[in-house]
Structures are given as structure tokens and as C-alpha cells.
Amino acid sequence: MQGEIALVTGAAGGLGLPVVKRLAAQGAVVVATDISASGITEAKRSTDRFELGAAQGTAAGNGTVYWRELDVADEAAVNEVFDWIAAELGACSILVNNAIKPCAIPHSFIDTGLEQWRSDYSIIVEGAVSCSRAALRQMVAAGRGSIVNISSVNAVGFYGHPPYSAAKAALLSLTRSIAVQYAPQGIRCNAIVPGTIKTPAWAEQVAANPQTFEILRQWYPSGDVAEPEQIAELALFLTSEQSRAVNGASLVADGGLTAGNLAMSRFVEGVPDPA
């Protein structure tokens, strides 16, 4: 990752921060963005070593992290950050579209107003579009780049949260569009499709039921839900040279959830429920 300049959205969150750390640990210069000033203050403490390392010129492999407050739904603000990158750091070569809203306990479909749909769409889809357009201008000029969109199993099957699910499904279409259109310019675009991840985005559900993750585990053939660091490793892979043959792909990381129904298969095969 030496020489790579990356921007990560939703970087102060439970998944974004491990992505920032993995990229920086491999030597990338990372612009970590988030809408939450307090979240940035907290997250910054765990990335200070990268900033210090760069300032003191320590060994290769230790990148740099710059924190910037950013609302991805504000296109002008997005363009301003990318202009700063071009002026101060060079062309952006990696973009990880990760920004979301916390997944609150959803209302029923008929009780979910358009304001919720618009909010999820503006952050997840329009935010990714604005960031991708700004990044692509720099990537096309440089003749190289990699974009990773963090989607969800909700994009390929229904597991609750209709507005969130629809927005994450749109990300998969966006991924294919960019991958096909910009492959001739040396640019790749892929998506990660994770299942449940143990992040603070589940805070409201966990507050309502501290056993939330334990209950969710029973639906996963692997018997567990993912740690953020596991998904961060996939983001690192998709932005690296090791994945240069991968383009327009949706990399599913869900412990087997979308492969089939574990409870139903046990019933059909006459296997007693271990619970």
C-alpha cells in the first residue's frame, strides 16, 4: 500500500475504523472521514500512532491518517475534501464507501415514512455516488484506482429494514456500473456483502436486548457473526494488487447465511435442534 492515497467514509464507526487502520498499517495515506465530530475525536486516539510515525519518518509500512469531518450527503463538501486531497496529497487511488446511519429498530413497512427512505438513500447511495464521481475524476487522470462499496446481505435477501435494504441493493448496481465503465481506465470497483457485524450500529437493538448477537448467531451456519476486523481484511484485499483480476464482484462474507436456511435444512434432514 506504499504510495496509495485512500479515502474512507464512515471512518469513525465500528467497521470504518478497522478499515482505516488496516490500510494505514500497510503504508497507505488514509483520509478518514465521518459526519460525527465526537466520533472522530474518539477514533483519532487509536490512529495517532500513524500520524506520529509519518511525522517522525519511521519505518516503511506505517502510513498516515488524516481525519476530516464530512457529510457524504453534501456533494459540495465531498468535492471540497477531494480537492484538498488532490492539492495536498496527490490523486486519490482508493475509495471505500462505508457511510451509513445506525440501524435503529425499524417500524413496519407501512409505518416507515419517506423521510426514512430518503435519509438512507441520501447517505448510502447518493453519498457513494458523490464520493465515487469525485474519486473517479482523479483516478481516471492517474490511470488507476480501486473503489470498494460496503453493501449488505440485505441487498440480496430480506432480513429487515426495507429502506436500508433497498439502498444497499442500489450499491450493488452502482458497483457493476462503475466496474464496467471504468475498467478500460485501469479502475476496479467491487462490493463487500457482509452479514451481521458486531459494531455499535446495533446499539439500539443491543440496548433493548443484550442477547441480540447471541440470538442472531443461531441463523448463521458458521455459528457466529463477523468481527469488524474480518471485513476490514476483505477491504484491504480488494484494494490491493492481489485482487487485480477482481472487478465488478460482490464478495459475500456472511458465514453462510445466504447460502441456505440452516434451521430448515436440519428439520428436513431430521437433525435435532441443538438448542
Rank of each mutant, 00 (worst) to 15 (best):
A259Q: 12
V246Q: 05
V81H: 04
P200D: 10
L70V: 07
M1F: 13
A169Y: 01
D34P: 02
T212F: 14
R137Q: 05
E269G: 12
A201D: 12
W67A: 08
I35Y: 11
S146K: 02
K168T: 00
T9L: 07
T258N: 03
A253S: 11
R22W: 05
V193I: 15
I150K: 06
F82Q: 01
I40H: 00
S36L: 11
A169W: 02
A6E: 03
A60Q: 11
L95I: 03
C189Q: 07
V81W: 00
A60Y: 15
G255W: 07
R217A: 11
A207I: 02
L238N: 08
N247Q: 01
Q26E: 11
A32K: 03
S108I: 04
G260M: 09
R68D: 12
I110A: 13
L23Q: 11
D48T: 11
V81C: 06
P18K: 09
S93E: 04
V180W: 00
C189F: 03
A201I: 15
I178Q: 10
A142T: 02
V271C: 04
A55M: 13
P106C: 05
K101N: 15
D111E: 13
S265I: 14
A134T: 05
S146T: 03
V225W: 00
Q230K: 12
L257F: 14
T64R: 14
E126T: 01
Q56H: 13
E42Q: 14
R144W: 05
T196Q: 08
A207H: 08
Y182Q: 06
S165H: 05
S151V: 05
A77N: 10
W117F: 15
E80H: 00
P272V: 00
